[in-house]
């Protein structure tokens, strides 16, 4: 939402970037097309006298298609979007896809470890992995910070505020970890 770019970023756009943007615009239109088709399958009960459950989906689908098509045209004619700025965003570097992939991987691992390891350890894992991916060195300090953070949140939210975060098999039965 910030509009701080007064030009430089837009000028050095690599042609590769257009592809991703084109895909996003086309995906918007495609989603709209899907919504239009799928809306026809929504069951309309006989009791509906005027506007049934299909009308609004048709409207939304049409809006998606319209916006998507306009955006495809805009991208093809070279009017690319202005990516968001921010304090910690370096407008001169190119997207580091490896970081994106690893951060997503860390989150997915977190999802599947909550019930296995317990929340505090899954949280420590997520924090440490994300911090190291983002450049924290040495790794064991990040791991330590993550472990402390996970346990503190468990005690404060699980123990004091009564949020039922699963402490996991290792900490099962420790009284102050559960609300």
């Amino acid at each position: 939402m910030s509009a701080d770019g007064s030009g430089p970023a837009a000028d050095v756009v690599a042609p590769r970037r257009r592809w991703g943007e084109l895909v996003l615009a086309a995906a918007t239109a495609a989603l709209g097309g899907y919504v239009l088709v799928a809306a026809g399958d929504i069951v309309v009960p006989g009791s509906t006298n005027t506007l049934g459950p299909r009308a609004f989906p048709y409207l939304v689908g049409a809006m998606l298609v319209a916006a998507g098509v306009v955006l495809v045209i805009l991208v093809l004619t070279g009017r690319a979007g202005q990516e968001e700025g921010g304090e910690d965003v370096d407008p001169t570097v190119r997207t580091d896809w490896l970081t994106v992939g690893l951060l997503v991987a860390a989150l997915v691992v977190h999802v599947f470890t909550i019930n296995v390891l317990g929340w505090p350890f899954a949280a420590a894992l997520l924090f440490a992995a994300a911090a190291v991916v983002l450049g924290a060195r040495p790794w064991w300090r990040a791991a330590l910070v993550g472990l402390v953070l996970g346990l503190v949140i468990q005690v404060v939210f699980g123990g004091l505020l009564g949020l039922s975060l699963p402490p996991g098999p290792l900490l099962e039965g420790v009284p102050f970890l559960r609300g």
């Binding site: 951060l103 860390a106 997520l126 440490a128 994300a130 190291v132 983002l134 924290a136 990040a142 953070l149």
Partner: peptide, 16 residues
């Protein structure tokens, strides 16, 4: 605050 900890923390709280 070091940025790697900041954004790792944001992810953690988002997940929580």
């Amino acid at each position: 605050i070091p940025r790697h900890y900041l954004y790792a923390g944001i992810l953690l709280f988002g997940a929580l």
